[in-house]
């Protein structure tokens, strides 16, 4: 469906996208994750034809839309874009916004279905500014799907919303995409969005693709500290201390093989434990969060984030034994 070959982009002297290669299959939902400033929004805008790349080639449906010689105007590309700020037309009602697209026909019952799935059927006669943020977001997505794009591009679709709303919207967005059998490329900085939506995950860091794969695999097998940290708190312990670990990666920063261990992967045994595989350390700080303790433990000068349930009473400066559960 979409094929990007050797794409680069710079602003002034700064390289925003560095030699990107990327393919999206028909019907696939792919998420690009990265911190802000990693160049992910720019990548979407280049695909949509709203910006020019420095070099590289873009193919949509086996047709070159952008390379050194060709540039197909955005309106002639078979893709549509959901903007981060929705870009709803303030002067049009919700309904007019949705049916604004050229091939979004009123007679099309599929669009009505989408409206129902999105739960915006009661808003049709309102103006965008009379709708809440979550509603505007759903309107914008329905509007973009209604034109039946070959590929739907979404820029930070849920970033402006609060936690509760996000949770329910993720389900709706996924449903919308699947119902309409839309191929989609989604950009987000929220890994949970990515885990929920996507068939495949691409990690972008400083303009480069550093990892790609099925979301859960990437979660379990990060190939860099940056990737690992996208998913939340992580401890990086050199492989030499955990010889039997099946997963490890080579950090390019210091050329050391590390194992990534999440705080919740640790088992705390209290004061006694298996000498062979246990670490022993001093609790530097401890705090109750919900049903768990979250603590920082000093293990031979390395500070490790550890999480455990409230069974054991743990105090600051206490010496404890703990070990990583590497079984899965």
């Amino acid at each position: 469906m979409l094929k990007i070959i050797n794409l680069s982009k710079n602003y002034n002297a700064q390289l925003i996208l560095d030699d990107i290669n990327l393919t999206v299959q028909n019907g696939e939902i792919v998420t690009i994750v990265g911190k802000s400033g990693s160049g992910k929004s720019t990548l979407l805008r280049i695909i949509a034809g709203l910006e020019l790349p420095m070099r590289g080639k873009i193919e949509l449906k086996n047709k070159t839309v952008n390379d050194g010689n060709t540039f197909i105007n955005p309106e002639k590309r078979n893709c549509s874009l959901v903007f981060q700020d929705y870009a709803l037309f303030p002067n049009l009602t919700v309904e007019e916004n949705i049916y604004l697209g050229k091939n979004a026909l009123k007679s099309d019952s599929k669009i009505k279905d989408l409206i129902n799935i999105a739960g915006i059927n009661t808003l049709l006669k309102k103006f965008p500014h009379q709708c809440s943020g979550g509603e505007q977001q759903r309107i914008a997505i329905v509007r973009s799907i209604a034109v039946k794009p070959g590929i739907l591009l979404m820029d930070e679709p849920l970033s402006n919303l609060d936690y509760e709303l996000k949770f329910s919207l993720r389900q709706i967005v996924k449903k919308l995409l699947i119902e309409s059998k839309t191929t989609a490329l989604i950009v987000t900085h929220d890994i949970h969005d990515a885990m929920e939506f996507s068939d495949r995950l691409i990690v972008l860091e400083k303009g480069r693709i550093i990892q790609e794969g099925v979301p859960n695999e990437v979660f379990k097998n990060p190939n860099s500290k940056q990737t690992a940290l996208l998913f939340g708190k992580a401890n990086f312990i050199p492989l030499k201390y955990l010889k039997d670990s099946k997963r490890s990666f080579l950090s390019t920063d210091d050329n050391i093989q590390y194992v990534c261990i999440r705080p919740e992967q640790f088992k705390v045994e209290g004061l006694v434990g298996d000498q062979n595989k246990s670490f022993e350390g001093i609790v530097k700080s401890v705090r109750e969060v919900g049903f768990n303790y979250q603590m920082v433990v000093d293990w031979n000068g390395i500070f490790i984030d550890v999480q455990t349930n409230l069974k054991l009473k743990i105090k600051k400066d206490q010496r404890i034994k703990f070990y990583p559960d590497l079984d899965f």
């Binding site: 309106e75 549509s80 874009l81 903007f83 870009a87 697209g101 050229k102 509007r143 973009s144 034109v147």
Partner: peptide, 17 residues
């Protein structure tokens, strides 16, 4: 700016948008 871009992605040519 953003609205023009939105119009483009909704398949309007610059003149139509």
């Amino acid at each position: 700016n953003r609205l023009i871009e939105a119009a483009y992605t909704l398949k309007f040519s610059p003149f139509e948008s």
